[in-house]
């Protein structure tokens, strides 16, 4: 037994890892059953920040990521848009990454156009698109949007977008929501928007790699943070708790459908994070197990050597 583990071929570890991720995906994918989520303080802060704004507030959503990090960030982007739309906020989408507008378009197509048919483009939401210049963009639009954004992505002039009439700069926003996969992203928003203008409120969702570098900013400059897929899942849980009846699949009479336990049947696109937490949990447990086994071997080894 000890020898087996000491000389363990790492391919066994690879196989375990594969199973730990693949099996939960298939089971969850086939049955739709997921693990419960207990939202942490930081995620609750994100939820409250959006929830406590009065309906009709202006929210700037900057989607600064690309397809490579979609797995971690798309669930957050989806939920942010859903939450803002359900709460009735005005949404101003923009992007600091060249492919960001595609991410915004995906969200608009899949969420707003499908589930919020009465929201009107230009009045309830607008896609301002991408501007090159990384943090330079933030530095400019913090005082004047029109200097860079003379039009939206469709080419509509700024002055012709109704919801932009009383907006001069980012400072007119009630909340900044940022989904970030790296540079330029949350760090730059904090440095160039929130730090010089402390009245601004900001929440963010970021990848796991970035999270450690953002913690120093909480809570003075960053008022809430969704860290990696776990943050996304917790946030989904909170939004579902609050808006489950709206979100659920509907029957012919537009009544929300429920399962046998009386829980709402939530469409798959709103539970991506929660679903992904299944493999995540199992894989983390595997990692912890591996660390423990590795150390047990190490101590046994040391004792045997000591005996010699």
């Amino acid at each position: 037994m000890y020898e087996f583990f000491r000389d363990l071929d790492r391919r066994w570890i690879f196989l375990m890892m594969f199973l730990c991720v693949a099996v939960p995906i298939i089971i969850i994918g086939a049955t739709g059953k997921t693990f419960p989520e207990e939202p942490t303080q930081l995620v609750r802060a994100v939820f409250d920040e959006i929830e406590n704004l009065p309906s009709g507030s202006k929210v700037l959503l900057s989607y600064d990521y690309d397809p490579a990090s979609e797995g971690e960030l798309a669930p957050m982007a989806t939920m942010f848009a859903y939450h803002c739309a359900a709460k009735g906020h005005k949404m101003y989408f923009m992007a600091l990454w060249p492919v960001g507008p595609q991410m915004v378009d995906d969200t608009i197509e899949n969420i707003i156009k499908k589930d919020f048919k009465d929201l009107k483009y230009g009045e309830d939401y607008v896609n301002l698109g991408y501007k090159s210049g990384y943090e330079g963009v933030i530095k400019v639009i913090i005082t004047d949007f029109t200097e860079l954004y003379s039009t939206d992505t469709r080419g509509t002039p700024w002055s012709a977008i109704p919801m932009c009439h009383d907006v001069n700069s980012v400072q007119d926003m009630d909340l900044i929501v940022n989904v970030s996969a790296g540079y330029a992203g949350t760090k730059e928003w904090v440095q160039y928007a929130v730090t010089p203008y402390p009245k601004l409120r900001m929440v963010a969702g970021c990848t796991g790699v970035q999270a450690p570098l953002l913690y120093p900013y909480i809570p003075q400059q960053l008022h809430g943070l969704l860290g990696a897929i776990k943050g996304a899942a917790e946030y989904e849980a909170l939004v579902i708790e609050a808006y489950g009846d709206k979100m659920a699949r509907k029957d012919a009479g537009d009544n929300p459908l429920t399962d046998d336990n009386g829980d709402y049947l939530i469409p798959g696109k709103y539970t991506e994070g929660i679903r992904r937490m299944g493999p995540q949990l199992v894989a983390h447990l595997l990692m912890i197990l591996l660390i423990i086994v590795g150390n047990v071997i190490y101590f046994v080894e040391r004792r045997r050597e000591g005996r010699r």
């Binding site: 796991g208 790699v209 450690p212 990696a228 992904r276 493999p279 995540q280 983390h284």
Partner: peptide, 22 residues
């Protein structure tokens, strides 16, 4: 801390490849 956080992202990436396949 950096290790722990990074692990999360890596597993998510693998999960997405499997989701693509499945």
């Amino acid at each position: 801390a950096a290790f722990g956080y990074t692990v999360m992202g890596r597993i998510a990436l693998f999960a997405i490849r499997l989701e693509f396949l499945f």
